Simulated assay, not measured.
Amino acid sequence: MTLDETDRAILRALAQNADQSTSRLGQKLGLSQPATWRRIKRLQEAGVIAGRRLMLDSASLGFGVTVFLGVKLATKGRVSLEDFERAIGAIPEVQTVEHVLGLYDYRVRVIARDLADFERVLRRRIMTLPGVGDVEANVLLSEERLSGPLEQ
């Protein structure tokens, strides 16, 4: 699918606020509500817009610590990657699981109420998973949410 400048403007606007109505978005871009809706629908059908997600503020919900783990599997042959992904994905404190190339096999984002809570999750849930070898933890200090480029 070839994106024109109007499609890119729609994507930029939705990336900043996916809740805005098609009327409001159309007004900002100089389009009618039906034209805006048709373009969004076309972008969804083409898979350019893969979905919309509600973003929760972890700190407001009592989760004050975010930790990124680098996880290296010790026994890749004995434990399938799918089994590890399924097991770690079932842990409620795990927000994302990314299979990566590099020093570690996985990058995992974990939220916890505090460091003691994170230690409990790490010791009782993550380190007991089959196949887990080396684990490196990096505590998040601050985070800026920046939209990525929308260029082809």
Rank of each mutant, 00 (worst) to 15 (best):
residue 91 I to P: 06
residue 69 L to G: 14
residue 40 I to V: 14
residue 99 H to I: 14
residue 99 H to Q: 12
residue 16 Q to D: 09
residue 143 E to T: 08
residue 23 S to G: 08
residue 3 L to W: 11
residue 150 L to R: 14
residue 34 P to S: 15
residue 124 R to M: 03
residue 123 R to N: 07
residue 77 G to L: 13
residue 13 A to P: 12
residue 28 K to T: 13
residue 151 E to G: 04
residue 68 F to G: 03
residue 35 A to T: 11
residue 99 H to M: 15
residue 118 F to T: 02
residue 84 F to S: 02
residue 152 Q to I: 05
residue 91 I to V: 06
residue 4 D to A: 03
residue 69 L to V: 12
residue 104 Y to G: 07
residue 129 L to D: 11
residue 40 I to W: 06
residue 122 L to H: 02
residue 146 L to G: 07
residue 97 V to P: 10
residue 3 L to T: 03
residue 17 N to C: 08
residue 25 L to T: 01
residue 62 G to H: 09
residue 60 S to A: 10
residue 84 F to D: 03
residue 127 M to F: 06
residue 140 L to F: 09
residue 29 L to K: 04
residue 146 L to Q: 10
residue 28 K to V: 15
residue 144 E to V: 13
residue 15 A to I: 11
residue 147 S to F: 13
residue 91 I to T: 08
residue 130 P to G: 04
residue 118 F to R: 00
residue 9 A to I: 05
residue 95 Q to E: 00
residue 19 D to Y: 02
residue 85 E to I: 08
residue 46 A to L: 06
residue 118 F to K: 01
residue 39 R to D: 02
residue 72 K to L: 09
residue 83 D to S: 11
residue 69 L to D: 10
residue 69 L to N: 14
residue 80 S to I: 11
residue 37 W to D: 15
residue 85 E to Y: 11
residue 116 A to K: 05
residue 36 T to N: 04
residue 66 T to V: 12
residue 134 D to E: 12
residue 103 L to Q: 08
residue 117 D to L: 04
residue 46 A to R: 03
residue 59 A to N: 13
residue 133 G to R: 08
residue 131 G to D: 04
residue 25 L to V: 10
residue 44 Q to V: 09
residue 55 M to H: 05
residue 141 L to Q: 12
residue 10 I to Q: 06
residue 84 F to H: 02
residue 67 V to P: 05
residue 122 L to E: 02
residue 3 L to N: 03
residue 105 D to R: 00
residue 84 F to Y: 03
residue 90 A to Y: 11
residue 50 A to Y: 07
residue 5 E to A: 07
residue 127 M to N: 10
residue 32 S to G: 11
residue 102 G to C: 02
residue 133 G to Q: 11
residue 123 R to I: 00
residue 9 A to M: 09
residue 93 E to G: 05
residue 16 Q to C: 09
residue 90 A to M: 07
residue 104 Y to C: 05
residue 74 A to G: 08
residue 29 L to W: 12
residue 144 E to G: 13
residue 31 L to W: 09
residue 134 D to F: 10
residue 56 L to R: 08
residue 60 S to Y: 15
residue 63 F to I: 04
residue 61 L to K: 08
residue 70 G to H: 01
residue 40 I to N: 07
residue 93 E to R: 04
residue 20 Q to S: 13
residue 70 G to M: 00
residue 57 D to A: 12
residue 84 F to R: 00
residue 96 T to Y: 02
residue 141 L to K: 10
residue 39 R to F: 04
residue 31 L to Q: 14
residue 37 W to F: 11
residue 73 L to V: 06
residue 132 V to A: 05
residue 39 R to S: 04
